[in-house]
Design a protein around this nucleic acid. Structure first.
Lengths: 186, 186
DNA sequence: CTGCTCCATAAGTAATCACTTACTGACAGA
DNA sequence: TCTGTCAGTAAGTGATTACTTATGGAGCAG
């Protein structure tokens, strides 16, 4: 998965996988364990999805519901940071899916439902629990927050570091600021 | 560029490019015009970058500076929508860079500076002109807004439509809401 | 008509790569 | 000890692909 993530699916050769697995490269020993190159990828994605820790655990209500305070703001930053670290941990698969998603429609659908929708639902529920009776579009707000965090990760991952002069600290603090202002009174 | 954008760099063959250009596929006629496959890509990216309309034109101050009102909010939505349409228009190059950026470090640097930094600077300046003396981190806010819009485009482009039950209308309206609340008093 | 310049094509070439086949040796069970 | 199974390797095979070389023909100048 590391090879797939770094080089992409097509650019990764069976010989490289064999070398990484301790087999003699080019000898075809991989086919004693997998039926095809694609089967290797699918097994890897399966394992990654199964072993992924549920992010929903992060969305435990931090404190009593009500107006957002400093504690819930810190909690939001912690959740966002945990999301970034999780994206890092699954970086190979995420990068691979971003690159070669079009070639694997079945995997694409699994990711769409399993990762995006579930996280969005949990985040929206958490935001709702923190909201103090505003008329904010909670689902859209959750989507905006997820988008910002995801895109921050994609940029740092693709370019080596975040290209704008805003570090993770400021980015997440501003995101928490956004959340607090949106959940508070209008 | 359409082929590169849809299939990726490696998966696009010289024969396909020749067919798309009206040459007989596989006959090598492309090499009368380009030195190599890579030269085709670079010429395409060059043309795309040169012909790109400057997005900074969208950031003309819409109205008098001051507290955000309904007019400036509508203006923000229009700007964000224009950004999405521009991402659509350059969709092939954007998709290609997202997929195969790692293989072309020189192109990566050009995009980082030319597209991201310039747009970010213009957006931050516009936000500053609209802000009414708050202590909000304008640069970070601009990064957050850009991230959200970019990620919305990436998702719709990669998955066919936005995977969450939030359409463009609600997404952008909420983004405008975020902007208004952040630029207003705390 | 002649000769020159291009452009396109046909037909390769060499490299890469996923995958296969034939064989070898290690090991377990009887 | 004999035998079957299985993981590993060597050595291919056929398909693909970027790129090259040789050939032919259209257009044009003189």
């Amino acid at each position: 998965m590391s090879l797939f993530g770094r080089q992409g699916y097509r650019a990764t050769t069976i010989a490289q996988i064999e070398r990484a697995a301790g087999l003699s490269p080019g000898a075809g020993g991989l086919y004693r364990h997998f039926a095809s190159k694609r089967a290797v990828l699918e097994a890897g994605v399966d394992r990654q999805i199964e072993n992924a820790p549920p992010l929903t655990a992060f969305f435990e209500p931090s404190s009593a519901t009500g107006a957002p305070d400093a504690a819930s703001r810190a909690h939001f930053v912690a959740v966002a940071r945990a999301a970034l670290r999780r994206l890092d941990g699954e970086g190979d698969v995420n990068r691979l899916l971003l690159r070669d998603l079009a070639d694997f429609p079945d995997l694409r659908d699994r990711v769409r439902d399993h990762e995006l929708r579930q996280v969005h639902g949990a985040l929206a529920a958490w935001l709702q629990s923190q909201a103090s009776g505003t008329d904010v579009d909670i689902d859209a707000l959750a989507a905006v927050l997820m988008s910002a965090v995801s895109h921050y990760w994609i940029m740092t991952d693709a370019l080596g570091d975040y290209p704008l002069d805003v570090d993770e600290e400021r980015f997440l603090a501003t995101l928490a600021d956004v959340t607090a202002r949106m959940l508070g009174p209008a």
